[in-house]
Nucleic acid binder design. Structure first.
Length: 869
RNA sequence: GCGAAAGUGGCGGAAUUGGCAGACGCACCAGACUUAGGAUCUGGCGGGGAAACCCGUGGGGGUUCAAGUCCCCCCUUUCGCACCA
């Protein structure tokens, strides 16, 4: 009667695979409450890893539990099948990407089936197939029509290793998200963008309502969207009068004069006054600030090296051009190294001035290497007294530092020196000084009034800026969704008409590592006809970022074979939002922000009604080994196949749930898997011994009552775990306790102390409790004990409060907080019973002898504490 | 630097609400059994001590009859963010 998962499991696996509708959802008319449980779809690398196993074990346990609780469950699976590895593999093995990918999918599907995961494969979604990606194209055209997809030349992140562009979200510390060692370069390219920034505010606001999402993920998204409230203020540019591009000698003279002004400025630290013969040029420079209230303290304006105004200034000034180039280089290097925060601040005076519209002061315009063109307006006003960076910069270059707010708690400030030692102070709990008509206002009040003032006078306004940028989706790669756009000489950019979709990805193509999109080298693909004028057109050769694929795949599951639309709205309306989404925290930003965006766009298109894709999100911890993330380079990768072969799928899955709470990192210990396997063996043998054996006992005894009590306590615990904390490690531990108690009662059972009915009911419930965690063993035993129908649809056991109740409890007795004895009293014993029992207890009396009991703490059901002196 | 989470036996972890610290499992030790197995069963297993008992949840302080749990300070680890104006 050995437990042999290697025989039991494949037998069931085959039976399940033969029933396509086994894990299918019921029709909407079933009247059952719907439950959509979803695990993130894998990239088909060809091999499941332990992270997948953990992810799917959690989801599968939940799905099975919900089925047994009588829900209508949708539990699908698919493949995130486009992406660069397929091209790399093609290069290496000379296999077409499609072939390689489909082969991997088949292999991984086998692994999933071997794991006994309860997916409805009839809804399988494979993103690299035209039946799927045609809808990516369809969505793209819809977004183009709505102005949400646009093309622009911009500075983009370029990974030399991938030979393609990356989205901001795919750059981590200046490196490619797929190539930890590869620095991302900045390049200028024409790219397609999706206007996710249109939804920045809604994406931010929506986070407040996502109470079923981990706070950590919400915070990460909040930071990523990076809203900041402030104001834009326009400064007029004033320059040394000499506007015409001067001949060489004149230019040198101008440079001298600028040097001269700079000299004076340095000597006197009073540039604001050293403005001699400057006059307005008609140019304007807008700065973005979150602290308009400190604008009277501005003593310079700082521009990003790439600011258009800088180009203009530098055109007349070779020295400046050289200096700016150096600054730009520093910034670029810092950016590429990913430590912009650590950059040493450098700057250069341009010789030009900006007029502060609030007080008409002329502030020197500098170029600084820490100002970023792509945030705000690429220009700032520098207020050294109240900003740490500005302070550092002003100290370094001797710029004036002017205090314009006085902290409310200013008691300690008695002199200028005191002030200096406190600088810079950035508090917003202060009052304005040295600020003209705004003096004595609070910061908050001043911010409002000054923005209003600027708006009324037409030189500024309150604004909101976001760190979030539009989503660049063009990729110069082959293995992705072709962007369905055409370039016609006459009609410009034209979308491919719906009836011509999908734009098929050509199959026969030589994958090489040379730059540019591989599709660009296929004349048959590139040369097309303009649908408007019928003339020749050039086809877009870039493909879409694969995150497009995963932004809406879960809608497709609800009607995966639909060839009229991306999905059926009514069906999606029934299933959405996803009740529980489960995956790794590494997708907290990328996938989870894109798919929220996509959902909002689809809602605005009228395809769906929900605002958010998923009601609840669970992010599981990583699977590690010997304290480190599993990786080939560390040689600590544990193969799921290997585990299944040695211990079975049940033991592997149950261990993945047992070894740690699901949200924490899990240290994979093979001995632990063996332990779980031993436990399953004990269950198997116990059940087999009693599956059919009735010995005619009918009389309830203390033992049978104790068994029933334990059983119902276990049912209660596990049912609560599913509804609450998801600490499946303790759920499984509870089943182990139950089984320990059952096997310990073996001799009592043999002695007829446990009625047949109790034993049979216990066995049945034990099998049901096991079903979400060890489905193979549960199915096998279910059959052995004569369970009817499929286990998955058998109702989850109900716990009986009366049977679960203890009738006698142990109450610890402390003397001065130290444990001295344990009382056995009837459950529900009142205070007087406890007091008497405690005082009468021998051990207690021994330790209180010769002392007076000052106080007795009685907590019925918990403990007794005697305070003695 | 900012923010979050965590720190409990040799190891993974338990102790939702302040109430017997170490459930359950691994490893280890002792024993039983034997068709000698990657088997099964029984018992032991935080530290000190012969015992009574004492000590023990990263460190230090505090609140409380009672603290792993609450409060204050500090240390360590992991994760996120980081010139964002």
């Amino acid at each position: 009667m050995r437990y042999t998962p290697s025989e039991i499991e494949p037998r069931w696996s085959e039976r399940w695979a033969a029933q396509a509708d086994l894990y299918g959802a019921d029709p909407q008319s079933s009247g059952k409450p719907k439950y959509y449980v979803l695990e993130m779809l894998p990239y088909p690398s060809g091999q499941l890893h332990m992270g997948h196993v953990r992810n799917y074990s959690i989801g599968d346990a939940l799905a099975r539990f919900m089925w047994m609780r009588g829900h209508n469950v949708l539990h699908p699976m698919g493949w995130d099948a486009f992406g660069l590895p397929a091209e790399n593999a093609a290069l290496k093995n000379n296999t077409p990407p499609r072939e390689w990918t489909l082969k991997n999918i088949a292999a991984m599907k086998r692994q999933m089936q071997r794991l006994g995961l309860a997916y409805d494969w009839r809804n399988e979604v494979t993103t690299c197939l035209p039946e799927y990606y045609r809808w990516n194209q369809w969505f793209f055209v819809r977004m183009f029509e709505r102005g949400l997809a646009y093309r622009k030349k911009s500075k983009v992140n370029w990974c030399p290793e991938c030979a393609t562009v990356l989205a901001n979200e795919q750059v981590i510390d200046g490196r490619c998200w797929r190539h930890e060692d590869t620095l991302v370069e900045q390049r200028d390219l024409e790219q397609w963008f999706l206007r996710i920034t249109n939804y920045a505010q809604e994406l931010l606001d929506g986070l407040e309502k996502l109470n079923g999402w981990p706070e950590k993920v919400r915070t990460m998204q909040r930071n990523w969207i990076g809203r900041s409230e402030g104001a834009e203020v326009e400064f007029a540019v004033a320059s040394v009068a000499d506007q015409d591009p001067p001949p060489e000698t004149a230019r040198e003279r101008l440079e001298e004069r600028i040097e001269d002004a700079l000299e004076k400025f340095r000597a006197g630290r009073k540039v604001l006054a050293a403005t001699e013969d400057v006059e307005l040029t008609g140019d304007k420079v807008a700065v973005f600030t979150t602290r308009i209230d400190t604008i009277y303290g501005a003593t310079s304006v700082q521009l990003a090296p790439e600011h258009p105004l800088v180009k203009k200034f530098a055109a007349n000034n070779r020295k400046l051009a050289g200096d700016v180039a150096a600054l730009l280089d520093q910034q670029k290097q810092a950016r590429e190294a990913g430590d912009v925060g650590a950059i040493e601040k450098h700057g250069v005076f341009t010789g030009h001035y900006a007029v502060n519209p609030f007080n008409n002061e002329r502030l020197p315009i500098w170029v600084a290497n820490y100002i970023l063109l792509d945030y705000g307006t690429g220009a700032i006003m520098s207020v050294p007294a109240h900003d740490e960076r500005d302070y550092e910069f002003a100290k370094k270059y001797g710029l004036e530092i002017r205090i314009v707010v006085l902290p409310r708690r200013a008691d300690a400030i008695h002199s200028e020196e005191d002030h200096d030692s406190l600088l810079p102070y950035t508090t917003e709990d202060s009052l304005l000084i040295n600020s003209g008509q705004f003096n004595t206002l609070s910061n908050e009040e001043a911010q409002r009034r000054m923005a209003q003032f600027a708006e009324e006078d037409g030189f500024g306004k309150a604004t909101v800026t976001y760190r979030l940028k539009d989503w660049g989706i063009s990729r110069q790669r082959y293995w992705g969704t072709p962007i369905p756009m055409l370039y016609c000489e006459k009609d410009g950019i034209v979308a491919v008409p719906d009836e011509q979709l999908p734009v098929l990805l050509p199959e026969n193509i030589a994958i090489t590592q040379q730059g540019g999109s591989p599709l660009g080298r296929l004349p048959d693909f590139v040369n097309a006809t303009c649908p408007k004028c019928g003339g020749p057109a050039r086809r877009e050769t870039d493909t879409m970022d694969t995150f497009v694929d995963s932004s809406w795949y879960f809608y497709r599951y609800t009607s995966a074979r639909n060839d009229k639309a991306p999905f059926d709205s009514a069906t999606a309306g029934y299933w959405f939002p996803i009740d529980q989404y489960i995956g790794g925290v590494e997708h907290a930003i990328l996938h989870l922000i894109y798919s929220r965006f996509w959902t909002k766009v689809m809602r605005d298109m009228g395809l769906i009604k929900n605002d958010e894709p998923a009601e609840r999100l669970f992010t599981q911890g990583m699977v590690i080994k010997n304290g480190a993330k599993m990786s080939k380079s560390k040689g600590n990768v544990v193969s799921p196949d290997d585990m299944i072969e040695r211990y079975g799928a049940d033991a592997t899955r149950a261990y993945a749930l047992f070894a740690a709470p699901p949200d924490r990192d899990l240290d994979w210990q093979e001995d632990g898997v063996a332990g779980v396997s031993r436990f399953l063996g004990r269950v198997y043998r116990f059940a087999m011994r009693h599956a059919k054996g009735a010995n005619g006992a009918t009389e309830a005894t203390a033992t049978s009552q104790a068994l029933q009590r334990k059983l119902h306590q276990t049912i209660r615990k596990i049912t609560e775990d599913f509804g609450g904390r998801w600490h499946f490690n303790t759920s499984i531990a509870a089943i182990m306790e139950l089984v320990n108690e059952l096997t310990a009662a073996e001799s009592a059972i043999a002695a007829g102390e446990v009625p047949d009915a109790v034993l049979a009911a216990t066995l049945r419930d034990l099998v049901l409790l096991l079903a979400p965690f060890a489905p193979y063993l549960a199915a096998e035993l279910w059959e052995q004990i004569g369970g009817e129908g499929d286990l998955l649809r058998a109702p989850w056991p109900k716990f009986d409060e009366a049977l679960a109740r203890e009738d006698e409890v142990e109450i610890p007795v402390q003397v001065n907080g130290k444990l001295r004895s344990v009382l056995r009293v009837p459950a529900g014993a009142g205070e007087s019973v406890l007091r008497e029992a405690a005082l009468a207890d021998e051990k207690v009396r021994a330790s209180t002898a010769g002392k007076t009991v000052v106080k007795v703490i009685l907590v019925p059901g918990k403990l007794v504490n005697l305070v003695v002196k």
